[in-house]
């Protein structure tokens, strides 16, 4: 059962990429795309995903696109302006260091999303993920305590992500 779910999810994602790349919905292109994605999915499903079709549940997709994505872009713009100020300032007001934070997310996909979001907001980037611990290089270290740092860096995204992915 799990195998079929994984395979179906992989094939659907590949088909979406195919349609986006070819840019048409003509039937011959579609048939080729379906055949190619099914064949590729057979070989790659086990390394492509661990959760299967659950990732495409309408709640996750809709919340991800209209709720999390704009939030991520907004965080990126805010953090970019902050870093731009640090770059332009003649005295270079930086205060860097590597801190350890704990994430509350359990599944691998959610951890990946949190780690990538942290990396995308300038001022913080993920050096390594080990279990539920993340090592983050922070350009302006406000605290080196694990709990407080966890609230300040991944907490921002987790609050948003918790609502539709547990």
């Amino acid at each position: 059962m799990k195998g079929i779910s994984k395979w179906l999810y992989t094939a659907i994602v590949f088909l979406i990429v195919w349609v986006a790349l070819t840019g048409t919905l003509r039937w011959d292109e579609l048939v080729t795309g379906i055949a190619v994605s099914i064949i590729l999915a057979i070989f790659t499903a086990h390394i492509f995903t661990t959760e299967g079709i659950k990732n495409l549940s309408p709640k996750r997709v809709v919340c991800g696109i209209i709720y999390f994505f704009p939030y991520l872009i907004w965080q990126m713009i805010k953090a970019n302006l902050d870093v731009a100020y640090r770059v332009i300032h003649p005295k270079r007001p930086i205060n860097p260091g590597i801190v350890k934070v704990k994430t509350k997310m359990r599944s691998n996909l959610a951890k990946t999303i949190v780690a990538n979001s942290i990396t995308l907001t300038p001022g913080t980037f993920t050096l390594d993920v080990k279990g539920d611990e993340m090592f983050i290089h922070w350009i302006d270290v406000k605290t080196d305590d694990v709990e407080e740092a966890s609230k300040m860096i991944p907490g921002v995204f987790e609050k948003c992500l918790m609502k539709f992915m547990d």
Binding site: N95, P96, I98, V99, K100, F135, V141
Partner: peptide, 9 residues
Amino acid sequence: SKCDKYGEY
């Protein structure tokens, strides 16, 4: 730099 938790780890 202020702290280096990764090196300690």
